[in-house]
Amino acid sequence: MTALLAPNRYRAVIFDMDGLLLDTELLWMRSEEAVFRNHGDTFTYEDKLAVVGTPIPVGSRYMAERLGLPEQEAQIEAELLDLMRAELRRQVDARPGALELVERLRGHLPLAVASNSYADIVRLALAAAGIADAFQAVVTADDVRHPKPAPDLYLLACERLGVAPRDALALEDSPSGVAAAKAAGLACIAVPQFAETDVSAADRVIDSLEQLLAEF
């Protein structure tokens, strides 16, 4: 491993949330499947790959168009969010190695979350997982004009942590997240949840956050 990719060279670590830090992509998928069932259709694995990592309005637009209801995009988004909030109130699990990595890093490095989800969804998920107090900064789609794949979320997270992007490490699971981190000037390690997800633009791709526990 080159020095560039060695995790312990960085002054801050910024986590994506859905599918990287928390196992919420599965909760999103349940909610997406329920929306499609409510409208007499089936949400497929290919549909999931099409929306994973995208901003919520983009995913909602895709779903509305797939359902043949482009004029009901706002209603589809509201329905999806209501279902997702209900899922989050039931149970939120962390991705393998995530809680251990956060615990390993907290108190030693500034930590942040940079998520394409809305603030209330992020707060609810982090609280349900018991890690809401682990991060010095939490930035969401509500905080920026252009969410991922634009660099804005990562630039704002670095600003709030007081570190230069070149000194921060992003942990991501989606193509849009990797693109955002790289556009902002961060090094990025990708941990894709779905095997078909193309995260080859990341500086390094690993199978699980557990692999980083021995490196910090």
Rank of each mutant, 00 (worst) to 15 (best):
T197S: 14
P175K: 10
A181C: 08
A128Q: 11
T140W: 02
P192K: 06
Q193G: 12
A184H: 11
A180E: 07
L124K: 05
Q136E: 15
P149F: 10
T140R: 01
D120V: 05
V138A: 02
V199G: 06
A181G: 13
V144Q: 01
L171F: 14
I189H: 15
G162I: 06
P151K: 09
N116S: 15
A180W: 01
R123A: 09
I121L: 15
S115A: 06
P175R: 10
G162R: 08
R145W: 02
A164T: 08
V122Q: 08
H146G: 02
P151A: 11
L161E: 09
K148M: 11
A137D: 05
L186T: 10
A157I: 00
E196A: 13
L155H: 03
F194E: 11
D152V: 07
D142P: 05
V199S: 08
F135R: 07
E159F: 01
L169K: 13
A168W: 09
A128L: 00
P192R: 05
L124V: 00
V138P: 03
I121W: 02
D143V: 00
V122I: 08
V138S: 03
V122P: 07
A134E: 09
A184N: 13
A164K: 12
L124H: 06
A187M: 15
G185F: 13
D143G: 01
A125L: 02
F135Q: 07
A181H: 13
V178K: 14
G177R: 11
D167V: 02
D142F: 03
A137E: 05
A164M: 08
C158M: 05
A141I: 02
V139A: 04
R160S: 02
A168T: 06
R145F: 04
Y154M: 04
G130H: 09
T140I: 00
P165V: 13
A128T: 03
Y154K: 04
A134H: 13
S117M: 06
P149L: 10
P175W: 11
P165L: 13
R145Y: 05
I189E: 15
S174A: 14
A190H: 08
D198P: 06
L155Y: 06
A184M: 12
E159Q: 09
V178C: 13
L186F: 10
A195I: 06
L126Q: 08
A195R: 10
D120Q: 12
P151I: 09
R160E: 03
D142M: 04
E172T: 07
A184F: 12
L156T: 00
V191K: 14
G177M: 08
V163N: 10
S174L: 01
S200I: 07
D173T: 04
E196L: 03
L153H: 01
D143H: 10
A181L: 06
Y154I: 04
S200K: 07
P165I: 11
P192H: 07
D167C: 05
L161W: 05
A125C: 04
D173I: 01
A157K: 00
A127H: 09
V163Y: 11
D173G: 13
A201Q: 15
